[in-house]
């Protein structure tokens, strides 16, 4: 942690950490503690008076059918996003790893969506699926499916998941490819000599050997689906139709900035904070140690 050889004590190190610490205190720790405090208050709609109510906001949330279904929906949404984008990335990486000539070209062509902002990813997909103009509704209509994600909650959810998963494939692909390339050739060759075909080798060698990466990616993808997909949802569905695509982060934003329910929104923020803390702990405790078989 600290260098064996270091500089003598002086005021200098305080000056060096000061900018980071000031930003942290003013924009992170103070607002977070405000959120904690506000979550214990009930404020009237004009912000004129507030009353200290202990955990009433939380008990209200726990009884709120809508909040509980948002929780469940967020869980389904994030696991589907993680599963879809990770499986596609795994398959593509498995094949890309075999390519000798043109491997970097494929990599270049597959990683750039990482640079696309979530809200733009949403805009591209919503354009492709525009009910009157979009190219997909046109073809879906030919096979007899009426597409309108402004009316159909299931279709809206599907569209949001597709956009979110599409954007994340690049990231997962990069990590899977790196993990596969670091598997020692001798292991794969030994299996080949023993007569295991490519598919068998993929299941019994590659997949278990990249499991630390899988575990790491599960955590990263769930964090992504929880927090970074706000832009996608905001631009594609705005949480609708009838809340069919409202996830936790979107609800915090909506209740706080649109509904102006400060106490309730703060209580939801606190719950999200607990979720982030749990995920960070999982990431640091288990990912660092690496899952191995």
């Amino acid at each position: 942690m600290l260098k064996r050889v270091h500089f003598p004590a002086s005021p200098l190190p305080y000056l060096l950490v000061a900018p980071q610490i000031i930003v942290t205190l003013v924009f992170f720790i103070w607002p977070a503690s405000q959120a904690l405090y506000q979550s214990l208050l009930v404020e009237d709609a004009f912000g004129l008076s507030s009353e200290f109510v202990w955990f009433e906001n939380f008990t209200l949330l726990a009884q709120d059918e809508q909040y509980l279904s948002t929780f469940w929906r967020t869980a389904v949404f994030s696991s589907l996003v993680a599963f879809i984008s990770m499986s596609i990335a795994l398959i593509l990486a498995g094949f890309a790893e075999r390519v000798i000539k043109g491997a970097t070209t494929y990599r270049t062509l597959l990683i750039w969506p990482y640079a696309v902002a979530p809200v733009l990813a949403g805009a591209l997909w919503v354009f492709m699926f525009n009910p009157t103009l979009g190219i997909f509704p046109y073809f879906l209509d030919i096979i007899g499916i009426k597409w309108n994600h402004y009316l159909n909650g299931g279709q809206a959810m599907g569209l949001v998941i597709a956009a979110a998963a599409w954007k994340q494939i690049a990231y997962n692909f990069l990590f899977y490819l790196a993990a596969m390339q670091s598997i020692p050739r001798s292991i794969i060759e030994a299996a080949a000599i023993d007569g295991a075909g490519p598919i068998r080798r993929f299941w019994t060698q590659t997949l278990p050997l990249v499991s630390p990466t899988t575990f790491f990616l599960v955590v990263i993808n769930i964090v992504y689906a929880f927090f970074e997909t706000f832009g996608i949802i905001h631009v594609v569905t705005q949480g609708g139709p009838a809340n069919a695509t409202t996830i936790l982060v979107y609800k915090v934003f909506n209740d706080g900035f649109v509904g102006l329910d400060l106490g309730g929104s703060a209580a939801q923020s606190v719950i999200l904070m607990v979720i982030v803390i749990l995920m960070t702990v999982v990431q640091f405790r288990y990912v660092e140690k690496k899952v191995e078989y």
Partner: peptide
């Protein structure tokens, strides 16, 4: 590179920011 009082305190304070994405503290 320096040994000074509250060194680890500052370190943990910076670490905490990892757990507080914008989305969870929007309003304040």
């Amino acid at each position: 590179y320096f040994k000074f009082p509250f060194r680890m305190g500052f370190f943990w304070m910076i670490f905490i920011t990892l757990m507080l994405p914008v989305e969870v503290r929007i309003l304040p």
